[in-house]
Design a protein around this nucleic acid. Structure first.
Length: 671
DNA sequence: CAGTGAGCGAGCTTCCGCTTGACTT
């Protein structure tokens, strides 16, 4: 019996079917050894020697694997072919006390690919393992050195890291751009025109004055726009150019983790976490390929299956021939295929699952199938019309062949234009001046943040969802009513502090530079210890200086003119983990605290009559409304009070599911 | 349904990336 170890139990089960009775196939459930959670675990004085432990979570898997290894004639490590996979193989070797395990890799789960892999074993690539160790150690040093700095200088429980701090910075900087943004007025002018012979109407946009493009015409006020309208009085509208071109639109590549998360957000508003939970189920059920991937690769088998499905369901003219896509994103490791249906012949309508799972499977199936379908073809018409010194332009497009759009619809605005000839004059029905204002850049949502992180090579498919959780768990950001991220006070404070004092760490390019260095380690051209040393020495020195230089009171304490209602000493505004609050300067003798006035609702507490109601959060981040005199008064409501009282019982009215009702469940008007 | 702060000492918070359940809402 030979033992073959992979990372995922689902993959193990699939492989078992291919390998038969002579093989025991087990899974490691990811990494099996890691740095200890409760301390740094790196001896910075001794060439950054790491002390790895087997986390309690991995203990069970390691025991099972140890036993299986003892019974096996041979152990084959078949973890993923990337940095992390190689490191898992190495840690398995150590944890299972293996002498000379075979190391194999395969990219497809087919009989042939597995056979080939088994015939070409190699040993563990220690350069690649070292690159992973360097990555792990650097992340630990940054995270476990900077976080305690924040505890000391801002508030306990905060955190910083190579990835999360840059994600936070993106959000923070976007907010600053929005705050600094000054909208500028501009105008456009459109002409409603009509062909004299057919009476067909269409609209054209003013694009030029003489040869000057619209942007340079600087129509920045109603006065400017009106001046043009005056100039155009009694002008003749003559067609000066007609151009008809055939356009093509190509399908998008199949999904990777990041594009699946983005699209599921755009189409269904699923948070990344939810998408991953659903995808996990689909993967375990055997319906889709592995869902944590950055690769667009498609196996030959899947391409052959796509041909069959497309010709059968849509006709031969919809089959594009096998289409392959290249990944251009930074830091892609491509250990897996793209996310696609395991068996494209399983059309979504034949699947029996929960509605949410079907929705996601359908999306994955459509995207994959469309990626192998013919491009959409359309006619694009451009008509230029001259009126005095001005040029107007009308554009239209007509779909000639839907191609992949049949399966994966994308925005396509069909617009038909009349058949006009050069020098033909048109009737002007109306000129419409339209006022616009330039818009600030939009705040990030889950989709746009993941997109930005991926394009900078920050984070990995397995971590995008957790990055989003982390910055919310730390109260650094909140989702607004549009589900877009806004920084909190504590988030802004931490970001500004890191940007000011540790600019190189929270530099958006930091990860890209690190990856270049890691590549050199993986190639064997650089040693990992000097690489880390070169980073750590200046970092440790700056950190030491900053412990001296930065004063906590400058960061998180503000003085006020107000007096403590309990003891009369001056009140301070302190910044804690959950935002700003009033605190007595006489602490610890006086323990008075209160929420900021601007956070209260301006509604008196109906129970103690002294307090004011304020929105608060539970530990699970759900909002409730309580008395600001807590703990003296424990009045609280789940739903937002309107500020008016019930006519029947004098209790507060609340807003529930967009309807107003009485907060008193005993009251006859409760419902 | 409810936190946060100071300073003394204890003990604890914290990173990223690989993988699933075992928990409870």
């Amino acid at each position: 019996m030979r033992l073959l170890i992979v990372e995922s139990p689902t993959k193990a089960a699939t492989l078992k079917q291919f390998l038969g009775k002579d093989y025991d196939v087990q899974s490691s459930f990811g990494h099996v050894r890691d740095l200890p959670k409760s301390k740094l675990g790196i001896d910075v004085e001794k060439d950054f020697e790491p002390s790895y432990v087997i986390p309690t979570k991995s203990r069970k898997a390691v025991n099972v694997l140890k036993k299986a290894a003892k019974e096996a004639t041979e152990v084959i490590l078949a973890t993923d072919e990337d940095r992390e996979g190689e490191a898992i193989a190495f840690h398995l070797k150590v944890a299972l006390e293996l002498d000379d395990p075979k190391r194999i890799v395969f990219h497809e789960i087919t009989k042939q690919a597995i056979q080939e892999a088994l015939e070409n074993p190699r040993s563990i690539n220690m350069d690649l393992v070292d690159a992973q160790q360097a990555r792990r150690i650097l992340d630990r040093l940054v995270g476990y050195k900077l976080s305690p700095f924040l505890w000391k200088k801002v508030a306990r429980g905060l955190s910083a890291g190579r990835v999360q701090s840059v994600a936070m910075r993106l959000i923070s900087e976007r907010e600053k751009e929005i705050a600094a943004f000054k909208p500028e007025e501009y105008w456009s002018i459109e002409a409603d025109l009509e062909q004299k012979t057919t009476k067909k109407e269409f609209t054209a946009q003013l694009t030029k004055e003489d040869a000057k493009a619209l942007a340079k015409m600087a129509i920045t006020s109603e006065k400017d726009a009106k001046a043009i309208l005056t100039n155009l009085k009694e002008a003749a509208y003559t067609v000066s150019n007609v151009e008809i071109k055939e356009g093509k639109r190509n399908p998008l590549p199949p999904f990777t983790t990041s594009t699946l998360q983005q699209t599921a957000w755009q189409q269904f508003k699923y948070p990344a976490r939810r998408t991953m939970q659903l995808a996990q189920k689909l993967y375990e059920t055997g319906l889709i390929t592995y869902h944590r991937t950055d690769s667009f690769n498609l196996s030959s088998l899947s391409l052959a299956a796509a041909e069959k499905v497309i010709t059968k369901n849509y006709g031969k003219e919809y089959w594009a021939g096998p289409r392959r896509f290249k990944n251009r994103s930074k830091g892609a490791q491509e250990a897996h295929e793209a996310i696609r249906p395991s068996d494209p012949a399983k059309v979504p309508s034949a699947i029996k699952l929960s509605p949410d799972q079907i929705k996601l499977y359908t999306l994955i199936w459509n995207r994959f199938t469309a990626s192998q379908m013919k491009e959409a073809v359309f006619n694009a018409t451009t008509i230029d019309i001259e009126a005095k010194s001005y040029t107007f332009r009308a554009t239209g497009q007509i779909l000639l062949f839907d191609g992949f759009l049949k399966v994966y619809p994308m925005r396509f605005e069909q617009a038909e234009l009349p058949e006009v000839k050069v020098e033909e004059t048109l009737t002007l029905n109306k000129l419409n001046p339209l006022q616009h204002f330039t818009q600030p850049p939009p705040r990030y949502n889950e989709a746009s943040l993941i997109k930005e992180l991926e394009s900078e090579g920050i984070g990995r498919p397995s971590t995008y969802a957790s990055i989003i959780s982390t910055i919310q768990d730390r109260n650094y950001v909140e989702k607004n009513d549009d589900k877009r991220f806004e920084p909190t006070e504590i988030g802004t404070t931490v970001n500004d502090l890191l940007v000011e004092h540790f600019p190189s760490i929270v530099d958006i390019k930091f990860t890209a530079t690190m990856e270049d260095d890691l590549d050199k380690v993986a190639e064997g051209t650089t040693e990992w210890v000097p690489m880390i040393q070169k980073f750590y020495d200046p970092f440790a020195k700056i950190l030491e200086e900053k412990y001296e230089e930065v004063e906590k009171s400058d960061v998180s304490v503000q003085e006020t003119d107000e007096k403590c209602p309990e003891c009369g000493k001056p009140l301070l505004i302190r910044l804690g983990r959950f935002g700003k609050f009033y605190a007595c300067s006489g602490f610890p003798e006086c323990k008075h605290t209160a929420p900021l006035k601007e956070n209260t609702l301006g509604i008196d507490c109906p129970k103690c009559k002294k307090g004011n109601l304020v929105a608060k959060r539970t530990k699970r981040r759900t909002t409730f409304y309580g008395c600001d005199k807590y703990p003296e008064c424990d009045f609280a409501l789940w739903d937002r009070p309107t500020g008016t009282k019930c006519k029947e019982c004098d209790s507060l009215l609340i807003e529930k599911n967009k309807k107003v009702q009485c907060s008193n469940s005993e009251c006859s008007s409760h419902k």
